[in-house]
């Protein structure tokens, strides 16, 4: 025992050190399953190239179409549709550059909108962490007020989830202290037009140092293709909602699902 004392102390001290630094600096991440969903959108392999999934929102308010044409499909469904469409049009995707493939997707209305992306990620996150089907829990429409919408939402939940639904008080509550923010929380634009999903938080002394999020941003110019889905990390200094809003150029609130 005496012979092993230095080793014993060294091992324990390093363990204590690690424990202290762990409490001082903490990294919180979204589940691996949810991260895989994010990666499937960010690194879509089409025609041997890797591209990010484009943004597409169903502005025409098309109903009852395939969800892949409504901006609500999974990455696999989008890839399958791209392969199918190129097959029909006798187009060799391998001969296209990344930019051309991206354009091909955009021109064929293949992509995802912000709430569609958030829904797919949240579904994976809640399934992994709480073994809960988020799509069954979320309240989309009231049966007595909108019976038809209630039924369609039961059959096709993702297509009926908008930022407004996610931000509804029946489904989520407001986070008032930034220190309480966790991965899986939603940064929502105050006018309820856009949602970012927090994927990673780095803390030091219970103060947020970095926030990573993923979102599907709308291209700002007409005929501008890009940038598609991406993940971004913001360094925080003052630790306030205003600072976060300023850094992502939006007036925001943060909400967490009730489930």
């Amino acid at each position: 025992m005496e012979n092993n004392l230095p080793t014993y102390l060294l091992t324990n001290l390093s363990a204590y050190y690690l424990l202290i630094t762990f409490f001082m600096s903490q990294i919180l991440k979204i589940s691996d399953k949810a991260q895989k969903i994010i990666d499937s959108y960010i690194k879509m392999e089409i025609g041997g190239k890797i591209i990010a999934c484009p943004y597409f929102i169903n502005i025409q308010k098309t109903r009852a179409a395939l969800r892949v044409f409504l901006g609500k499909a999974s990455a696999e469904e989008i890839i399958e549709e791209v392969n199918f469409t190129s097959h029909k049009e006798h187009l060799d995707l391998k001969s296209l550059s990344e930019k051309e493939i991206y354009q091909f997707l955009s021109e064929h209305n293949l992509g995802i909108d912000c709430s569609g992306l958030a829904s797919h990620i949240l579904q994976a996150e809640y399934q992994e962490k709480k073994n809960l089907n988020f799509l069954k829990k979320i309240k989309i429409a009231n049966f007595w007020r909108q019976p038809w919408r209630y039924l369609t939402a039961k059959l096709r939940p993702i297509e009926n989830i908008s930022v407004r639904v996610l931000a509804d008080d029946k489904n989520s509550f407001l986070i008032k202290d930034l220190a309480e923010v966790a991965p899986g929380d939603m940064i929502i634009r105050e006018n309820l037009r856009h949602v970012y999903l927090i994927t990673k938080i780095e803390k030091e002394n219970n103060q947020i140092k970095k926030i990573s999020f993923v979102h599907a941003p709308r291209p700002e110019q007409k005929n501008y293709f890009g940038p598609g889905i991406f993940q971004k990390t913001i360094e925080m200094e003052i630790n306030s909602f205003e600072e976060l809003g300023r850094k992502i150029n939006d007036q925001i609130i943060i909400k967490r699902l009730n489930f």
């Binding site: 395939l66 969800r67 059959l155 096709r156």
Partner: peptide, 12 residues
């Protein structure tokens, strides 16, 4: 499948 679930059961 298409109208009810928004997906394809068969590729075509």
């Amino acid at each position: 499948w298409r109208y009810g679930l928004g997906k394809r059961l068969f590729k075509m």
